[in-house]
Write a protein that binds this DNA or RNA. Structure first.
Lengths: 200, 200
DNA sequence: ATTGCAATGAGATATCAGTCTCATTAAGAC
DNA sequence: GTCTTAATGAGACTGATATCTCATTGCAAT
């Protein structure tokens, strides 16, 4: 199977690759951890072919997980929304929290797969595309002038630690908090950090 | 196999479990990546029994690899250490950060295993024992009277989101920060949250 | 010492990963 | 249209994971 781009039958190859990723994403959305054979069947492709495109089953799953649906920044912040950065950040967290709860199994699996891959040293696999980052930026944008640029960067990074599946995992698995308590903790942390960034 | 502690034949069970972990560690030290069957043989135990003690082969191997020198609260805070809760929390984070860097691969696999297990619905079996929680409590203990009890609980939980492998994963994989920047972000977040708890 | 039962052993069985080989199909160059 | 051959399909094969059943052992309560 030639690797060259734009030559030979690259259209056919792109189509097969796309079919595999879409099939994997479809199965992941059902909360399953599909075997490579299941993915291949779902994609109407033979097992051997799947292995021709991805070195391992988990590599396929990780890459598939990258294109899963997420809330949209524009929908979350209509023009008449609050300008208060803390309230906006908490709104982002709340929306993402809901989304994570709905897709908890799927997100845990994709996180687990990603961790497994990176633990093996595959450094060049797809970056875990920060879906949270544009949302956080959108939350802080209208108040950007209230912060020193350096503080804004720190705040964005720190918020990314609180807003996302990883924090949810810590709350539920390590701290063993229920959902209400989890929301309260994150809400408080977000308020604390925005206030701190404002003050300096 | 009863799960109760301290009753029935818990001595026998502890011995079997220890044998399995020691056998795994022995094989790992030889640079091998032993299968569960090899570990069971080395431990003079049947395969079925090994599965009675560990949910999966990798769970066994990972746990065997965790002879991590987890920093000890007493060693971290000698009597003449600072009393400032922010400084102490940052010290905990720094120590844990170093430990995590040294055992990054193992910890990633541990996290991945835990996520995979819980995604499958085995939510009740191995609770992720929070090694970070006693450290955080020790950091805040001398200043406990500076916070309202409710705030103290919020602060402890929020700090657990920043201090630990999950936050490290977010910084490196999602935000793609280098090590220095990662430390800076966490340090800033810890300071922000302790200050917020103090103020109310 | 006897005995109940927890713990274990010894398989059988099913599934999956990953690698090969070889035949078949169809895309694209001519 | 026809050819070439890249892409694919079908299946064998090895070794590992994981679950299950049933017989056996031996710890510990009596």
């Amino acid at each position: 199977m030639a690797k060259a781009d734009g030559t030979g039958r690259w259209r056919q190859r792109r189509r097969t690759r796309k079919d595999l990723l879409q099939a994997a994403a479809r199965l992941l959305r059902l909360g399953r951890q599909p075997s490579l054979e299941e993915v291949a069947d779902e994609a109407l492709v033979s097992r051997a072919t799947a292995y021709r495109y991805f070195p391992s089953a988990s590599a396929l799953l990780v890459e598939a997980a990258v294109d899963l649906a997420v809330p949209d920044a524009a929908a979350l912040f209509p023009p008449d929304a609050t300008q208060d950065p803390a309230a906006r950040a908490q709104l982002v967290d709340s929306a993402l929290h809901d989304m994570i709860l709905e897709n908890e199994v799927t997100l845990r699996l994709m996180l687990a797969n990603s961790l497994q891959q990176r633990a093996k040293g595959d450094g060049d696999l797809p970056v875990r595309q920060g879906r949270r980052i544009p949302l956080i930026e959108a939350a802080l944008a209208p108040a950007a002038d209230q912060f020193a640029p350096a503080d804004l960067r720190l705040l964005q990074a720190a918020l990314a630690l609180i807003i996302g599946p990883e924090a949810m995992v810590v709350c539920k698995d390590v701290l063993q908090l229920d959902d209400a308590e989890t929301r309260r903790v994150k809400r408080w942390a977000i308020g604390a950090m925005v206030a701190a960034a404002r003050r300096s």
